[in-house]
């Protein structure tokens, strides 16, 4: 059966990269981040998602070895 951690890992990694990239591109756009008190939430959320996705994929890989 398909291990659910694989699609979760890939989805979060892909969305994480996308959000981080968008955050970097718009980093100078102060008007965009007025709502979030000039915190670039796209980069933060994106990185968090990327880390979570990678950890999910790593647990699958480690589980297979043992």
């Amino acid at each position: 059966m398909l291990d659910i951690r694989i699609p979760i890992g890939f989805l979060f990694a892909v969305l994480g990269v996308l959000l981080t990239a968008y955050g970097l591109l718009t980093n100078a756009d102060t008007a965009l981040y007025t709502k979030s008190f000039q915190v670039n939430v796209n980069i933060w959320s994106g990185l968090l998602m990327l880390v979570f996705g990678v950890v999910m994929l790593l647990t699958v890989k480690m589980g297979k070895k043992s």
Partner: peptide, 10 residues
């Protein structure tokens, strides 16, 4: 109120 484009989509 809080989310800019990007995380808003999320």
């Amino acid at each position: 109120h809080y989310l800019p484009t990007g995380v808003l989509g999320l």
